[in-house]
């Protein structure tokens, strides 16, 4: 009887190993990084070419055009990157003959969204309380945690990316004035680097 129990355990093991979400597209990582770089450039222009400093406006609780512009840039990058990731990963799943919505994909997405949503709400509270300097570190930190936990359900390289984002978030907290720089490295540079690694390692 133990033989049969062992048989079932073997099947389960193989299935789990095989159903890791391997459709995640490296190319979409590269593109997300490029969007982030463009976004960072636009944000840089918004912040440094405006008459008054954006931080000042924040502190006064003003919703200046600059702040709204920054939020629009941020959300556009987020939406564009998510859509690209979704479309390219679906395409890759089709190419691999896999179901896109396998149980691993579900688990991956939920373990990604929970920390990220917490981070998003936390960042809104920071803005509301006028702690703008900690927005970038907090975003990087929560994003890193989200990426790390999601990494359990896909290529293990993703976990490394998560750890790097976490370290970057902590560094950004030490240098709160340099948020945009860390943001550019974390969301731009690291995504391009990691996307390229994934692309050359698994997609060629």
């Amino acid at each position: 009887m133990t033989d049969y129990i062992q048989d079932l355990a073997t099947i389960r093991g193989i299935m789990e190993k095989r159903t890791k979400f391997i459709s995640l597209s490296g190319l979409s990582g590269i593109l997300a990084g490029i969007y982030a770089l463009i976004g960072a450039y636009l944000a840089y222009r918004t912040i440094y070419y405006s008459d008054k400093t954006v931080y000042e406006a924040y502190r006064n609780g003003e919703w200046s055009p600059e702040i709204i512009q920054l939020l629009v840039i941020g959300f556009s990058v987020l939406i564009l990157a998510s859509l690209t990731g979704l479309v390219l990963s679906m395409r890759k799943a089709k190419k691999l003959g896999q179901d896109f919505w396998n149980p691993s994909a579900m688990r991956m997405i939920s373990s990604f969204l929970v920390p990220l949503t917490a981070g998003g709400i936390f960042v809104m509270i920071l803005i509301w309380r006028g702690q703008v300097a900690y927005v970038a570190p907090a975003l990087l930190l929560f994003y890193g945690v989200a990426v790390y936990t999601a990494g359990n359900f896909t290529f293990s390289d993703v976990k490394t990316l998560g750890i790097m984002e976490i370290i970057l978030g902590l560094l950004a907290a030490i240098y709160p004035g340099k948020g945009l720089l860390f943001w550019t490295i974390g969301f731009g540079g690291l995504h391009i680097l990691y996307g390229a690694i994934m692309y050359f390692k698994y997609e060629r």
Binding site: M1, Q6, T10, I14, M15, R18, T19, G97
Partner: peptide
């Protein structure tokens, strides 16, 4: 003991063949 399970598919009553099919159940080629 083994006799009671004679209705099991003999081809699949082997861990290696069963493992092979498990892989092929998930991946196409």
């Amino acid at each position: 003991m083994k006799k009671r399970f004679l209705d099991l598919d003999k081809i699949l009553d082997n861990r290696i063949r069963l493992s092979m099919l498990s892989i092929l159940m998930i991946e196409d080629m």
